[in-house]
Design a binder for these strands. Structure first.
Length: 130
DNA sequence: ACCTTGACGGTTC
DNA sequence: GGAACCGCCAAGG
């Protein structure tokens, strides 16, 4: 194996590890609650990497992860809004899925005061444990 | 190797 | 509130 190729493979593998950590964290968000990208990044041990969370969610395996689905739609931005363009198909899908869980979505806005996930100690440990 | 593009976020005005 | 700005960094061109 050539050095450069080996290094590239290692790097790619590292990226996937980050994605996995993010997926696991998202799976901990309970029904009827939402979390923002930055919050997920922090919990996943990747502070300041909110954008990476978006990337990871866009790469979620179709069948879920570890035999469990990944509720990507429970992740919104720090302004309490859905990050897809209003009117787009993805936006509509996310909005519908959230409302199916009793989350109130007004336009693109969701009241974080009311619906943001605030993990208790047990949940935090679960996330850290993986 | 350089540049652009994001499912973002905190600060500042 | 909201808009402009900057920092962030993985992917793709």
């Amino acid at each position: 194996m050539v050095k450069t190729a080996d290094a590239a493979l290692t790097a790619a593998s590292a990226v996937n590890e980050k994605h996995k950590k993010i997926w696991q964290t998202v799976q901990a968000i309970p029904y009827g609650k939402v979390a923002c990208y930055g919050q997920v990044a922090d919990l996943a041990g990747l502070p300041g990497r909110a954008r990476l969370v978006g990337k990871a969610l866009g790469a979620v395996p179709k069948g879920g992860w570890r035999g469990q689905s990944v509720p990507w739609y429970r992740v919104i931005n720090s302004q309490g809004k859905i990050s897809f363009a209003p009117g787009s198909e993805s936006f509509q899908q996310q909005s519908d899925l959230l409302q199916d869980e009793q989350v109130v979505v007004l336009g693109a806005k969701i009241k974080l005061k009311e619906f943001q996930w605030q993990p208790d100690l047990a949940e935090l440990l679960f996330v850290l444990k993986g």
